[in-house]
Design a protein around this nucleic acid. Sequence first.
DNA 1: TCCCTTGTTGTACGATCGTTCAACAACGGA
DNA 2: TCCGTTGTTGAACGATCGTACAACAAGGGA
Lengths: 221, 221
Amino acid sequence: MPLKALAKTAVTSKPRFVRQLPEQRRQALVSATIECLKRYGHEGLSIRTISAQAGVSVGLINHHFPNKDELIAAAYRHFNSELVAVFTNAVARAPANPRARLHAFFQAQFSLPNLDQDVLTVWVVFWGMYRHSRLIQRVHRETYQGYVQLVRGMLADLIRQERAHARIDLRLAAIGLNALLDGLWLEYCLEPGNFKPAEAVALCENWLDNLCRRNDRAALE
Amino acid sequence: MPLKALAKTAVTSKPRFVRQLPEQRRQALVSATIECLKRYGHEGLSIRTISAQAGVSVGLINHHFPNKDELIAAAYRHFNSELVAVFTNAVARAPANPRARLHAFFQAQFSLPNLDQDVLTVWVVFWGMYRHSRLIQRVHRETYQGYVQLVRGMLADLIRQERAHARIDLRLAAIGLNALLDGLWLEYCLEPGNFKPAEAVALCENWLDNLCRRNDRAALE
DNA sequence: TCCCTTGTTGTACGATCGTTCAACAACGGA
DNA sequence: TCCGTTGTTGAACGATCGTACAACAAGGGA
């Protein structure tokens, strides 16, 4: 056995790196980006921090993504679509009536993985980029519609079943419910000790009760 | 007239800089910081950007503040207390009954200077620092109480007047109202075209109506 | 008028940022 | 077994960051 081969087998026992398909590596980099965002917030968004988290060298990121902004946009898209999937699945597993589906939706909103300080940290970073980054704006438009459609659809079903469609403005109702959900979620993430997740769910259910009860009043025009 | 004096008068006609009292200069630097935050978000928080906005040299900031973090904390404190003052003044100018005071509060929430994308930009930057900066946490605790007390006090007055105190949980009511306010404000700042400020006020008033009407139900336990 | 205090300037330094790129090496196919 | 493709490495570059500090000068008091 020649020396060269001997050396090779000795080295080959622990390769200096493992090649991966571009799609797998891209996904790993996206996951590392989100993990860094959760851990360090805005400060975690450096090429060196992310590459260290992914266990690769600094140069690899620019081999799979044209620049840092594109990597962040990809992470934003992945983060968004995964949360929407969580809510969609929770609703799909619920009984087929509107009230039960909305209840499952509330439960998903106010439990893991959504009800998490780390998730707020990630959102805050993305919000901070929204105004100045066209990439983030585009991804937002592409993913946010799925969420809005989900909520609006459930509300429309509820209103139809309760025969309360006459005087209720579906648009305003969706805006109000969304605001209540976002506000409660935000409050909890900022100060988790102030109330319990079940109380947040109760507040949302109560809001639905009041929405259905005022179907013969002109409350929301 | 000696040459030296001649040169001096020629220069003195336009002094290279104007001295100011430390307190005035500190305030100017704080204002410049907030202005930079509004304009450029997180990217505007550099010593050079802020000093340029204030029209001073890079070294001056560290003469009036021990470091950058202290300047940001001072800006956060000023920003917070000014917003609380806006709300407090709006409530103070309103008629003395609870409902009118809450209405004035809603109006102030959903109009300038609070209902502004720039204000959201500033908040987002501060939120992003909250978890990792003890300075920001301390300032938050010192200023947020004034806001909470204002809202909770008005709600307590309303409940007392409406004789609805029996079954209403003041704590949960304040949490729910705050969530609705924050959520609507956030939604509007992110996408101002979706609804009008008056509709946000109407949604809040409606929430109050429902709160008072359910005083003989066990809705919120 | 001169001096002393101190607010103010601007250069310099080391650290860290995103990006580039030449060189390396893993690994499938011939 | 060797070769070619290409995923991967890591040093290097210029830009920008926060901070330090020596020098300057404005403006009031003696």
